[in-house]
Design a protein around this nucleic acid. Structure first.
Length: 260
DNA sequence: ATGCCTTGTCGCACAAGA
């Protein structure tokens, strides 16, 4: 079973690219971020025509997340628990039934947090604290659970082509990195780094200044697996070639293959 | 030092992204 995550940067602008990728890779489950659409305007039909069940959690203009699954989506939950005042659509979670029982997964678009010195950075850190609390709760189920998405965190210098360029950026602050580490220290496995120790493994290249051509990328899209999900892990990958297509997102898909 | 592009909204430029 293949489960993927991709920040598509706008479903309306990316529809052809996304459909081409779905036809090429045919994931069983796909988590999309930055759909930038309200639920009622999401172009459902082309995805359903490919055999996907679809659940969205959108908002006007920005953010927004979506889940696609060939199996029926069960117990859908919208929004990250822990702050009733949070209006931003950045989290959706659901489950599917597999032979081993239930498999649950959360699709997240973690706040960017820039620029430092504004309310955006503490919002990011607070959101991460809520994510840690929610993951801790989910892990008590002792079942396969995955957290996939755009974490907007550069964990280590190896995860950036030019780490010194990110020292004043919210993505590479000690407070952001510490919380991403704390999340993993709950017992979650970070899929890609467990599959490879290679350098220059990136998931995002800025549209500006020829970042793609120079391979000036960063790795900020991650898949975390609970112990029971890690036991099923067969492999993982990054669909880097998609960044070279026409009308690309600035992010590329990341995926895991599970023995389920 | 800043913008470099791209998106969506809504305007006939702007905010936001990372």
């Amino acid at each position: 079973m293949k489960i993927a995550t991709w920040n598509i940067n706008g479903v309306k602008a990316r529809i052809d690219t996304v459909l081409e990728w779905l036809k090429e890779t045919s994931p069983d489950i796909a988590c999309f971020q930055e759909i930038k659409s309200v639920d009622e305007n999401f172009p459902r039909q082309p995805f359903e025509d490919l055999g996907y069940n679809l659940e969205t959690h959108g908002q006007k203009g920005f953010n927004g997340v979506a889940l696609l699954s060939k199996l029926p989506l069960e117990d859908v939950r919208r929004g990250l628990p822990g702050d009733d005042q949070d209006e931003q659509a950045r989290y959706i979670e659901a489950g599917v039934s597999i032979d081993q029982g239930a498999l649950r997964f959360g699709c997240l678009y973690l706040p960017n947090g820039n620029p430092l010195g504004t309310e955006k950075f503490p919002y990011k850190l607070g959101w991460m604290d809520r994510l840690i609390a929610h993951a801790e709760k989910q892990l008590r189920d002792e079942a396969p659970f995955l957290l996939l998405g755009d974490y907007n965190v550069i964990q280590d210098p190896i995860d950036a082509k030019n780490p010194q360029n990110w020292l004043d950026d919210a993505l590479f602050q000690p407070e952001s990195r510490q919380r991403f580490r704390a999340l993993q220290n709950l017992g979650l496995t970070e899929a890609v780094r467990s599959c490879t120790s290679a350098e220059e493994v990136f998931t995002f290249w800025d549209y500006q200044a020829g970042a793609w051509q120079k391979n000036n990328g960063i790795r900020i899209d991650h898949i975390l697996l609970s112990p029971h999900a890690t036991d099923l892990l067969n492999g993982c990958g990054i669909d880097k070639h998609v960044r070279g297509w026409e009308k690309p997102s600035d992010h590329v898909p990341v995926w895991v293959d599970l023995a389920a």
